[in-house]
Amino acid sequence: MTDLLVVTAVPAEAEAVQAGLDGSTVVVVPVGVGPAVAGAATARLLAFAEAAGRPYRGVVSAGVAGGFADRVAVGDAVLGNRSVAADLGAESPEGFIPIDELGMPPELLGCGPTVPADAELLATLRTALPSATVGPVLTVNTVTGTAASTEALRRRHPDAVAEAMEGYGVAVAARHAGVPFVELRTISNPIGPRDRDAWRLGDALAALTTAAVALR
């Protein structure tokens, strides 16, 4: 059995993770942006490893994220205790309806809109990263960029700490493969009205390198 598989969205995140590994056997692969491509690519990597007789011990979805300002600060590390498909569902005059409340047969929902992190893997990383904030990480297809949409997310997910674009897709791939999963993020910007100039990607990537030491 090989070590962890760490998947990121973009090469810059993969490079930041690799910089903290110092020759570790952890495999780091940038798989693309968004839950669909990240999930498909992760499933392919897991299938190839299993077919080769060297299945991965666990999967980590890692990278930068936006954080809810009252929960985390820019540069903080976040561990997702569950990954949530925050916009998977339907709009209605009464508000957003999560997919598991639409009356579909359970067998059509697969993993459902929430995938919990593997308890043992999460506990190991919590021990290695005692200052990390632990909580739900939302997966969105459209990055939140207004005060109204930020407030809507807060109402639907009051305990969420961050949002990103890949975690849920990677979590579903790991769940179907029977491989432990967890999400690790570092915060580059507060969630809210879009202000690209205020993003501190350099700080978040440096924090990701520091946090990646825990993945050894």
Rank of each mutant, 00 (worst) to 15 (best):
G110K: 12
P105Y: 00
A132P: 11
V115T: 10
M104Y: 08
T124D: 15
F68L: 14
L88C: 15
C111H: 01
D87Y: 10
T114I: 12
A77C: 08
A73M: 11
A123G: 15
F68A: 02
P113S: 11
A85H: 13
S83C: 06
A119D: 14
L88D: 15
V84L: 03
P98E: 07
P93I: 03
F96K: 08
G112W: 05
A65Q: 12
R71S: 15
A69G: 08
D87A: 12
V84S: 01
R71Y: 06
I99F: 02
E107F: 00
R82D: 15
L88A: 13
A85G: 15
S83Y: 09
G95T: 12
P105M: 01
T133F: 04
P93T: 11
E120N: 10
G80F: 02
L88E: 07
L125C: 08
D100H: 06
D70M: 05
T114E: 15
D70S: 12
E107C: 09
G80A: 10
A65V: 10
T133W: 01
G135D: 12
A65M: 02
V115R: 00
C111N: 07
T133A: 05
G103C: 09
A117L: 04
P116K: 00
D87V: 11
P98N: 03
V78F: 00
L122D: 07
F96G: 12
A128Q: 09
G80D: 03
A77Y: 01
E120R: 05
P130D: 03
L108P: 02
F68H: 01
V74K: 01
L88I: 00
E107D: 15
F96T: 09
E94I: 05
F68R: 07
I97W: 13
S83V: 14
A132K: 07
G80P: 14
T114Q: 05
L122Y: 08
I97E: 09
G67A: 10
G110R: 03
D70I: 13
T124P: 07
E120H: 13
G80C: 05
S131V: 03
E101S: 02
P106C: 13
F68Y: 12
G110F: 03
L121I: 13
A90V: 08
V84G: 04
I97D: 14
D100P: 07
V115G: 00
P106A: 13
L79D: 10
N81G: 08
P116F: 10
